[in-house]
Design a protein around this nucleic acid. Sequence first.
DNA 1: AAAACCACCAACCGCCATTTA
DNA 2: ATAAATGGCGGTTGGTGGTTT
Length: 263
Amino acid sequence: MVRTPCCEKMGLKKGPWTPAEDQILISFIQQHGHENWRALPKQAGLLRCGKSCRLRWTNYLRPDIKRGNFSKEEEETIIKLHQILGNRWSAIATRLPGRTDNEIKNFWHTHLKKKLKLNLENPNSIGKSVRTLVWDIDNARESEPVNFSSQLRFRSLGYEMISAQKFFDNFPTSDPVMVTTSRPVKEEDVNNTTNVPEMNVKYQPKNSSMSNKCLGVVDPRLECSYSPEAAMERVDGNNSNINDEMVFWYNLFIKAGEFSQNS
DNA sequence: AAAACCACCAACCGCCATTTA
DNA sequence: ATAAATGGCGGTTGGTGGTTT
């Protein structure tokens, strides 16, 4: 099915909004609300498509929008949430009152991305070493996912979560690394290193209750198991406040009801 | 002084999921 | 049941203003 883009009709204006157009839109919505964006521009007398009107309103004209620079607190919140949620800008925006997803996305691309990149290039600048957790995303989707709370714990500990393929394509294998996968463990998987041929690691089902869900791949130097608790030792031994931070974010998300606890 | 470059951000585009007819 | 309409999302673009060469 092919849909006609809503702005393809001739005669509809594009580009920056004028103050006069803004005023028309504000007045109309104040009087009539915005139940039907498609019909709104015609009713309001605007030569715009409904989509353009919706965007202008939600990202700029809405009365509850906070303007101005992001505070240090907002910045830290964005960084933490992005670590957990990734590029889910609208989900991040729901936790920053008055900020829009577009604004946060722009702020991320123009300020935070660069800042974090610098930090990663110079790990000492953030006072901790960064390990990489490779999450086997592709396989995880096909079978029972590793429960969310475990993912959250790893992320709150500062792990980057990427696909196994991406990791092996791009990263040196000498770094401390732990790999998890949620695909069911088969007998022949034990000691099978075919998926990670250059690494001196092995698949290892931790125990019988876990073996139908996940595999732990053990970094030979760290001897860490799959269990998040057991993996909490940082490379630099700095564990201060890790638990508090973890619990805070975990509670926040569970209370917000965005994620269910599926263990 | 002016051209080139860069950073910012409002707005657009295409896709997807849901709702409606 | 199904096609079309709609709202919402994330990625990307392009205009603008500031800075550097």
